[in-house]
Design a protein around this nucleic acid. Sequence first.
DNA 1: CCAAAAGTGTTGCTATTACACCCATGG
DNA 2: CCATGGGTGTAATAGCAACACTTTTGG
Lengths: 242, 242
Amino acid sequence: MALADYKHPYVTVDLLLFSIIDGKLAICLTKRDEEPFKDMYAMPGTFIHEDESAEGAVERLLADRLGLEGNIYTEQLQTFTDITRDPRERVISIAYIGIIPDMNMVKVPWMEWFTIASSNVGYEKLLKVGDGSNASFISNSLGFDHDEMLHIAIDRLRGKTQYTDILFKFLKDQKCFTAAILREIYQAIIGKEVNRGNFTKYQMNTYIENGLINKIGSTSVGRGRPADTYAYIGGEKLWIRS
Amino acid sequence: MALADYKHPYVTVDLLLFSIIDGKLAICLTKRDEEPFKDMYAMPGTFIHEDESAEGAVERLLADRLGLEGNIYTEQLQTFTDITRDPRERVISIAYIGIIPDMNMVKVPWMEWFTIASSNVGYEKLLKVGDGSNASFISNSLGFDHDEMLHIAIDRLRGKTQYTDILFKFLKDQKCFTAAILREIYQAIIGKEVNRGNFTKYQMNTYIENGLINKIGSTSVGRGRPADTYAYIGGEKLWIRS
DNA sequence: CCAAAAGTGTTGCTATTACACCCATGG
DNA sequence: CCATGGGTGTAATAGCAACACTTTTGG
């Protein structure tokens, strides 16, 4: 059973880069300019080089294709190995989730943002952000098996919002935010509204009790009563309910 | 960017096969008979053939290396891509969790079972099952990065026990079991005791309310009062708390 | 002083826990 | 008839949702 006896497949990483735009969960896509799936939208991806790990490939992808340097939160989603998922040849893809707090961090022109209209079941509705075109399409017209990836990723985000600190990765300023800001993120991911008062009282308190955030002061700008401000201090530790 | 421009790595699947033995979570390992990590224990694995998916490779592994035919529950755990995780050459591994209800289903002599002594933090203590040798070792002496895999897999099992029906996969007879049997499995995975009465009343009731199980009758064997018996009927649907 | 924004309290419902009690069987 | 295993009831507690109330600011 020598190693060389086995033919091995191509391996790529694909990145599902999420952000919150206008109170809605959004994903960063690119229109493919070559076959297969030419002119269809897809998540950005790249082949893994022989001298890098999958995480390394994701970092390179973030830097080269998205222009994102520095510390971007990523985590492995799942690996997709269907023999026919790439019509050219056998290609395995390791999908990663990425999160950035601000869509404007992506400055390259070939990437486009789409908000995700939370469909109850079936396919997601994707709505182009920003250019006033109101262009939209349904996620099952994504290239490759990227519709499946998107579904699994959204599920993962929703699940982890319940028992980890993943939603803090969406904060534009982790060192100064209000309950309202965090609630907007929470609702965007979950896909439904939660009561304002209760969110402050229970959710924020739970975060404080678990040492994830600190109350640091209050805003003095805005129309109404100044909101308390918080700072995220949790490291990488998981926070599991009770 | 033609496909052929990229050198691609070897890809394997590794299987973490779990069962419950004597009320304790257990894993199926094999002593490696060749380099690298010769004479160390490791999870069984195999290279992915060019005409099969990762799931296909796992099925082949189950059949050829473990002698397990038929419907064995498996799910993808995570993909490991460190460049140096295999000292020979660059090898990516897609790790899978497998669950069988009875260790005796594995009849091949080269596989050995070890119970996992739930360590709070750090490494697991693995204890050889069955031959009276009382041999044991610490999980960080597993070959490759299999210690890390084991940790991640146990975490996954514990998490999914809370909100899925994964513990029913451990049942020796899914069509006839008692609350006591299910509780033993539950405790083995979680690693701590739960109150007997409450488990029957709440846990079993929740399963019933979610359509996962049905009360079917009662045992008439055993020393004390005959226990109610249940049958697992849930398909593949997730059961998420409230 | 009033509207707007945001933090706190009150109430009732539900889930969880601990523990006791009663039930059915084998020896 | 008693030890043993197993179901069910109860009370105390914790958590959650709805909603009303209060606080603070800008005009």
